[in-house]
Simulated assay, not measured.
Amino acid sequence: MEKNNYKNWSETKYLEDIVTNPLITVGKKSYYSGFYENNNFENGCVRYLWGDSSTRDLFNPEEDFGWELDRLEIGNYVCIASGVTILLGGNHNHHPDWITVYPFADHVKESFLPKGDTVIKSDAWIGMGATIMPGVTIGEGAIIAAGSMVLKDVPPYTVVGGNPAKEIKKRFSEEEIDLLLELRWFDWTEEEIKESEPILMSQDIHKLYEYYQQHIK
């Protein structure tokens, strides 16, 4: 089997071109680098989320059971590496507070509980082999180190790693983070971003803010 139609490890695919699941919303230019995986993004990287092509014809839990299904929201310019697992699907019908965690089929309808939407905000980078647990929000510009297990929200422009993932450092000073969250370069038009690429690929946040004030604001 070809590596999910990826020709080599350096090839990426824009999520907006490959996602069909109605419970996944994707911003512009966010990509998945899936060469090392044998499954596609919607049922390999994203797991237990009804609505991909393989589950759509089986049943509809919203209509059949009245479940409120969790969603996945991905912002603009998000980078997702091979081996990343994004877990969804609520509690998967397993109740740790019940006597048994076994999901007896006759009671599956009543056993489901949502976990809340999982949100990966713009310009985040999810490293190879990381796992994102249900209901987590990953802030703008955050970096998730390879192999991390993310159990709770990650603030903007923060690097986390480990199992469970813990903060390693802030990418920038608090003042610089505030400027980045104000100017939100990833929401600009493609033309505006193209013009500012030399600044974006530098460390000069104040220069980018000047550009924002002069040309964007």
Rank of each mutant, 00 (worst) to 15 (best):
N40E: 05
K13S: 02
K170E: 07
I199M: 02
V154H: 09
F65P: 05
T100F: 08
D204K: 06
E42V: 06
I24F: 03
R56I: 13
Y77R: 03
T55Q: 07
F186P: 05
A81V: 03
D123R: 08
E174Q: 14
I99T: 14
A81K: 01
Y157W: 02
S202D: 05
T189Y: 10
D153F: 01
G83P: 05
G83A: 04
E197Q: 13
I99D: 09
D106A: 14
A165H: 11
G139A: 06
S82C: 04
E167A: 12
Y31M: 04
E197R: 15
H206A: 08
S30I: 01
N4I: 07
Q213I: 13
A146D: 06
K166F: 03
W67M: 02
G135N: 06
S148H: 12
F186N: 09
G147M: 13
Y48P: 01
G44R: 09
S10F: 10
Y31P: 09
L49K: 08
I205K: 11
G162A: 07
F104P: 02
L181F: 11
S148K: 10
W185S: 07
G27L: 00
K109H: 13
M149P: 11
V119I: 14
Y48A: 11
R56S: 14
Y36W: 06
K7C: 01
D187W: 07
D204N: 12
N93S: 15
E73Y: 09
N40R: 04
Q213S: 10
E182L: 15
K13T: 04
E175H: 13
K3E: 03
G44T: 11
F35R: 03
G66Y: 12
V136L: 08
N76F: 00
N21L: 04
E167H: 03
V78P: 06
A145Q: 15
F186Y: 10
A145N: 14
F65D: 08
F35L: 10
L58C: 15
Y36S: 06
I86V: 03
V26F: 03
K121G: 00
E210H: 11
R71D: 00
I144C: 09
E42T: 03
I24M: 01
Y31F: 07
N39P: 01
E2C: 00
E210A: 11
G83Q: 06
L183H: 10
L208P: 13
